[in-house]
Design a protein around this nucleic acid. Structure first.
Lengths: 136, 136
DNA sequence: TTAAAGCTTACTACGGTAGTAAGGTCAACT
DNA sequence: AGTTGACCTTACTACCGTAGTAAGCTTTAA
């Protein structure tokens, strides 16, 4: 009943490259696959589910370390949602900080770019800004 | 008149670690420093200026490759500001794309987190989202 | 039987930064 | 003159997540 697939199939089913599937096994976020006599990895439904979980978590920007925690929670029926939420909110804060940082870069850079004529003249407020820029 | 300083001084003057100064020389973004008889690197005012330029560019998120171009423009009196602006706008677009990406992550994650009670109960919409999440 | 596709391990590289180890040099103080 | 401590040198490793390569074995299909 538990259909087993080799790594290529697992990859196309989950959107995770074979390369990364092996890597996830290596760093311990994905349970080791069983093997055929020839040494081919075999994945069951649980593996496929987990790979989807991992990919979606990556898409939301979680680090592999965080994903390892998320997976532990997921597999633990005695988890407290408090801890999952804590992790999520912490990551959310990181995301927000990155956004702020990028917005600040954008602000400065946009201001400089606006002042630059962008023609065949060498005068360039962007370069002048990078050379002096007091706001740091 | 051109005061020469060793790497530690150059580092404290510019806010770039000695480690990174050596690295910049290695990858060719910073002109090779002269040396004392003992092999200590010696930096002049031009080096110091360039290191400041590099640091400010990094702070705006430019890659080392982009910085190499920016430096070339900066040192080239025959530059056309058009090309500098093009580079800046291209980087600006990357920044904007990253912001959008992060905002999308935030949106999804915030929505999931909002639905999670965050108590001692195991039920957790965050984990359910990561396990299924159709919007991808 | 042979060719193609798929799998294996082991290695390299990326970008930017930081850490370590093992050593040479310089300045100041004794 | 010798010692100490700060500073410098090179060379290496590691981080994170991903991708590429090479050399070789296995399976599937013609």
């Amino acid at each position: 009943m538990d259909k087993l697939v080799t790594i290529g199939k697992a990859s196309s089913l989950t959107g995770v490259s074979a390369k990364m599937i092996r890597y996830y096994e290596e760093i311990g976020v994905l349970k080791k696959a069983s093997r055929t006599d020839a040494g081919y990895r075999l994945y069951n439904q649980a593996h496929i589910q987990q790979l989807g979980f991992i990919r979606r978590s990556r898409n939301l920007g979680f680090s592999m370390t965080e994903i390892q925690s998320l997976l532990k929670f997921w597999l633990d029926n005695d988890r407290e949602s408090r801890n999952v939420k804590k992790l999520a909110l912490s990551h959310l804060q990181e995301i927000n900080e990155k956004i702020v940082e990028l917005e600040q870069m954008r602000e400065v850079l946009q201001t400089l770019a606006d002042k630059c004529d962008g023609d065949d003249n060498p005068d360039c407020p962007i370069l002048e800004g990078l050379a002096h820029l007091s706001s740091e």
